[in-house]
Simulated assay, not measured.
Amino acid sequence: MDFALILFILSVVTGVLWALDRFVMRKRRAADAGEPVWVEWGAGFFPILLAIFLLRSFVMEPFRIPSGSMIPTLLVGDFILVNKYAYGIRLPVLDKKVIDIDSPKRGDVVVFRYPLNPSQDYIKRVVGLPGDTVEYFGKRLKVNGEEMPLVAQGDYLHADRLQYSKRFNETLSGVQHAILNDTDAPDYVPPQQRLPFQGQESCVYTSQGVRCTVPPGHYFMMGDNRDQSADSRFWGFVPDENLRGRAFFIWFNFSDLKRIGRFH
């Protein structure tokens, strides 16, 4: 069951208990009588649960990075905060947008519900906006025919697998960030790794890479660890209604406390 739904149900149940005690039972208790257990352990938690529910639903929500697809920007084990109102106010549980605030920009790092399994949360970088033509050939990214600048930064050592990747600084529509490429990985998307997705006719796959035109109301996402990321190249576009929020802050990492406060 979705954690937001569990939190909502607990808030409603404890809220009913709180209201029952506040407006009915409290008046019937003797002045010197203590609070019953159901008030102390039920209604007493209502303000705390309600505050957590509102904070997670409308302000910010914590997530843990489970994979290495966003290395070197985000590492496995990073605990991040996600701005829930960056792209609009959504109804809790139903996740339906009711107030439009802003739209994702190229370069934003976004948490979203995986289009092929909405119960899973993914995190990637936005590289293509609605209407954009995104090309990834020979490990070079182009957006609307413009190649995104790359500056070599030497090698990056993956401590978990003692392997090196090539590190670059990529500038994506004015946003500079680090990416990794593996020289021994193929430039193209292997056919056996492509998954059927809605709008697949908007993509052209070749032995050198892929070119996609992003449909209206959708986004093209890629991981910064380019050759170790299953992203829009493999499973398609992310609809606007799947967006959860913009990642902006690392608040903890058990393995490396120096990472706290990094990111943007």
Rank of each mutant, 00 (worst) to 15 (best):
L54F: 08
W235Q: 08
M1H: 06
L50V: 07
H158Y: 13
P115L: 07
F220Q: 13
T73M: 15
F79Q: 10
T14V: 03
R64W: 10
I99H: 03
F63G: 05
I6Q: 06
P104A: 02
D224Q: 10
A43M: 01
I179A: 04
Y188R: 12
V13M: 05
F3C: 00
E40W: 08
A31F: 00
E35P: 04
L50F: 08
Y219V: 02
M60N: 00
F53A: 02
Y205Q: 09
I9A: 04
V143R: 13
A159N: 15
H158Q: 08
G77T: 04
V175T: 14
G174Q: 10
F137G: 01
R28W: 03
F137A: 03
P104M: 04
F3M: 09
Q200I: 11
V110M: 13
F237L: 13
Y87G: 00
K124L: 10
M148S: 07
S119T: 14
I71A: 11
L50C: 05
L74A: 06
S103A: 09
Q200K: 12
F63K: 04
F63I: 02
P72V: 05
R29P: 04
E146D: 04
N181T: 12
R56A: 09
I71L: 15
Y156H: 11
L55K: 01
S202C: 02
W235E: 08
V82Y: 11
L10T: 03
G68F: 04
T73H: 15
E241D: 14
E201A: 05
L49Y: 07
L74I: 07
I99N: 01
W41M: 04
Q228D: 13
Q163I: 04
S57R: 06
D132S: 02
F137K: 11
G261W: 08
V12W: 03
P115W: 10
D32W: 01
F249H: 08
A31Q: 05
A4V: 09
K142R: 14
S229G: 14
D102G: 03
G107E: 09
P130E: 01
S232V: 12
P62C: 01
G217M: 02
S232I: 12
R56H: 11
E135A: 10
C203F: 01
V12E: 03
F263Q: 12
V126I: 14
A33E: 11
L50Q: 04
N225D: 12
T14R: 03
Y164E: 05
